[in-house]
Deep mutational scan, measured.
Amino acid sequence: MSDQEAKPSTEDLGDKKEGEYIKLKVIGQDSSEIHFKVKMTTHLKKLKESYCQRQGVPMNSLRFLFEGQRIADNHTPKELGMEEEDVIEVYQEQTGGHSTV
């Protein structure tokens, strides 16, 4: 019986991991920090939209990076291997420009 009891508790931990929340720091170019608590399985588009709304800027005017890689709207913290207190960097999107060649 103890084996049966242990097995469901392991499964519960697996389920808990799926719905687990982590805190992420979003740091802007001006070094301002906003902290977000997100589920591991939530699409990061929600975090990006919330950040842009707080900053009063359109979402397409900023780019969000985690460990140097651009974050897509459909990425989740779990897919990117994010952990508690990880940092997302935000930069002004640069458009235009010309070749110097």
Rank of each mutant, 00 (worst) to 15 (best):
M1Q: 07
M1L: 09
S2E: 15
S2N: 12
D3I: 11
Q4A: 11
K7T: 11
T10N: 14
E11Q: 08
E11M: 14
D12E: 10
D12R: 13
L13H: 06
G14Q: 14
D15Q: 06
K17L: 09
E18G: 14
G19L: 12
G19E: 13
G19K: 13
E20V: 11
I22Q: 03
K23F: 02
K23Q: 13
L24H: 02
K25G: 02
K25N: 11
V26N: 00
G28H: 04
G28I: 15
Q29W: 14
Q29K: 15
S32T: 08
S32Q: 09
S32P: 04
E33M: 05
I34V: 12
H35Y: 12
K37R: 14
V38A: 07
K39V: 00
M40I: 13
M40Q: 03
T41I: 10
T41W: 02
T42A: 09
H43Y: 09
K45H: 10
K45P: 02
K46Q: 10
K46C: 03
K46E: 04
K48M: 06
K48E: 01
K48C: 00
S50V: 13
S50A: 13
Y51N: 05
C52E: 03
V57R: 15
N60P: 06
L62S: 04
L62T: 03
R63T: 06
R63Q: 05
F64P: 03
F64G: 02
L65W: 00
E67I: 01
G68Y: 01
G68S: 06
D73Q: 05
N74G: 14
H75A: 11
H75R: 05
T76F: 00
P77G: 02
P77N: 02
K78W: 09
K78V: 10
E79W: 07
E79N: 06
G81N: 03
M82G: 04
E83G: 13
E84V: 09
E84D: 11
D86W: 00
D86R: 02
V87F: 14
V87K: 11
V87Y: 14
I88W: 01
I88C: 02
E89K: 06
V90R: 01
Y91G: 05
Q92G: 11
Q92C: 13
E93A: 08
Q94S: 13
Q94P: 08
Q94R: 08
G97K: 04
G97V: 04
V101F: 08
V101T: 10
